[in-house]
Amino acid sequence: MLTDSERREIEATLHHYPHRRSAAAGAMRTVQRHRGWLSDEALADIAGFLGVSVEELDSRATFANMLFRRPVGRHVILICDSDCCYVMAYEQMRDHIAARLGIGLGETTPDGRFTFLPIVCLAQCDHAPAMQIDDDFHGDLTPERIDQILASYD
């Protein structure tokens, strides 16, 4: 079942679209914001509310790079691996984060604090190398700056 606030937020977007089903992408975003990730149950809740099939939602969700179909940590680190960040030594930053947290890309720290993932260009190329943690951008990364930034997420 969708919670009251999830349902209210989704309902507020329905009039943006001529068909109820077209609110699905936004609905998945909304539910992920509340629950952290999209479980099978979450997809079923959305599907029931919008009158679409779970499979339809899943075909969208698995193609999207900002929806998570597996549990993630309290904070999600997305490090940009595209060309401008490549030129600006993102690989060194990636390795630094991995060493600090003791996890590789695609993994979550055992305490559930961070999940570490790669992402394509974040449109922060003027501040490459760049990463995103939850909704915040962090650019002009150096190993020292990364240590400070990580420390600010509990």
């Binding site: 449109a123 922060q124 190329c125």
Partner: peptide, 8 residues
């Protein structure tokens, strides 16, 4: 969408 790598 601005997802072309290099564009900001």
């Amino acid at each position: 969408d601005e997802m072309e790598p290099g564009s900001f």
